[in-house]
């Protein structure tokens, strides 16, 4: 039985209304092909993401890792890092050269800045997501474990979701001509790994959590620390939280 038919039969076995349980070859990179197989049940997970701004050093390793992990085309970004330089209450300079794929340079004059910090950005995987709402063909969807993804085989490439996302997280892939976005590295997290950006972050500024895991440290931080979400006034209920974000961050 090929892997493909295996997956399909696993799907059919689940049946309508029941839990979606999909067999995932775990650690396939290091194991012999298909040797270790673990069953993944999306009802057992509820993911969330936490960005700790005070820890980010602006190295851009996350952006580089994301690009390589997901083959993100040039000039498009599933994640990026912004640098905010606040000079006074009225003047804030923001930049993200190439999404910080190669980190940041010292381009800004250090003089006169009252504060400066880096802000990693990625898809917020909103609970009430405007992008999925507007997809005319149901190619954008939210999984039970809370990840917003695109069905590349159904997407017609109209670009409506790109317009609807208030965070600029989506783009039309110039090669596949379909919408694309951050998936929280769904192929990794379902194998029990961290998203590539989280793994690449040397300072723990990016944290990936699961509400349904016992004593999850990330969920605990979100529950007990003063976190905020981006553009809360739009009521999209982002599942990506920010710790220590300045008012300028949008």
């Amino acid at each position: 039985m090929s892997r493909r038919t295996f997956l399909v039969s696993a799907l059919q076995g689940a049946g309508a209304g029941a839990a979606l349980v999909i067999a995932v070859p775990v650690d396939s990179l290091l194991a012999d092909k298909g040797r270790v197989v673990e069953r993944y049940d999306w009802n057992d997970h509820s993911y969330l993401f936490l960005v700790d701004i005070s820890r980010c050093i602006g190295c851009g390793m996350c952006v580089k890792a994301c690009k390589k992990e997901n083959g993100v085309p040039a000039a498009f970004y599933r994640t990026w890092v912004e640098r905010y330089t606040v000079y006074d209450e009225e003047t804030t300079h923001i930049e993200s050269p190439e999404g910080a794929m190669n980190g940041f340079g010292p381009s800004n004059p250090a003089t006169g800045a009252s504060k400066s910090f880096f802000v990693p950005k990625l898809c917020n995987h909103c609970k009430y997501t405007p992008c999925t709402q507007v997809c005319p063909v149901g190619a954008s969807y939210t999984t039970r474990d809370g990840v917003v993804m695109v069905d590349r085989k159904r997407c017609i490439g109209c670009g409506y979701c790109v317009q609807a996302c208030p965070y600029g997280s989506r783009y039309i892939d110039p090669e596949s001509h379909t919408a694309d976005k951050c998936t929280w590295c769904y192929h990794r997290i379902t194998r029990g790994m961290n998203p590539a950006c989280v793994q690449a972050c040397p300072k723990g500024a990016r944290l990936f959590g699961d509400r349904m895991r016992e004593n999850d440290p990330v969920f605990e931080m979100v529950e007990t620390r003063p976190v905020r979400i981006l553009q809360p006034e739009l009521l999209t209920k982002p599942q990506c939280y920010y710790l220590g974000a300045d008012k300028e961050v949008r």
Partner: peptide
Amino acid sequence: LLIHLGHPERAFNVLITPNFESAMA
């Protein structure tokens, strides 16, 4: 619209599997 679409050959998906939450559907 067909010229604009990334995948005009899938245009009929709008009728086959419409998502009625979307105005475009």
